[in-house]
């Protein structure tokens, strides 16, 4: 299968588990190590935002991630059932403003946008979906299907 999936409770203690899952999945997909590092980071940032902001770090809720291997790259699809994020209202922060305001947050989505080729947030009837796409060379599927 050209798909890997994981579902975890919305608690930041699970971030490492998600990162390890992405590293393993991308290795199986034959993705280059330096690309993997950036993609792991982007997934970590989205999951951190979904867990903390959309689901208030409440482990009663779940976050689900599918990674699809496509012919031209990788599609990461996140599902959560928390508060929806209004991407249209997002404004990219400036580093000098964060410095003067002594702000520790606000950088996550900036990193995601720098790493990914396409970022989208949508709302379905009962939940939210975030999709990230990255054009990246992936291995032919013969040796990695299971």
């Amino acid at each position: 299968m050209n798909k890997r999936s994981i579902t975890v409770p919305c608690s930041i203690v699970n971030l490492k588990r998600i990162r390890d899952f992405v590293r393993k999945s991308l290795k199986e997909f034959g993705v280059d190590g330096s690309q993997t590092a950036h993609l792991v980071l982007a997934v970590d940032e989205v999951c951190t935002n979904l867990i903390i902001h959309a689901n208030e770090n409440d482990a009663r809720f779940l976050i689900h991630l599918d990674i699809f291997k496509k012919s031209t790259g990788l599609l990461f699809e996140f599902h959560d059932w928390g508060k929806a994020f209004d991407y249209a209202q997002y404004q990219e922060p400036h580093l000098d403003e964060l410095v003067s305001q002594r702000k520790r947050g606000s950088l996550g989505l900036l990193l995601v946008r720098k790493i990914m080729d396409n970022v989208e947030f949508t709302q379905e009837e009962d939940h939210n979906i975030c999709r990230l796409f990255k054009t990246v060379p992936v291995q032919e599927s013969i040796n990695i299907d299971r």
């Binding site: 990162r19 590092a37 792991v40 980071l41 970590d44 940032e45 951190t48 580093l95 964060l98 410095v99 002594r102 702000k103 520790r104 947050g105 606000s106 950088l107 996550g108 900036l110 990193l111």
Partner: peptide
Amino acid sequence: YISSAGLGVFIA
């Protein structure tokens, strides 16, 4: 590994 949460420490 460092995520934006760690980078934020340096910035803040």
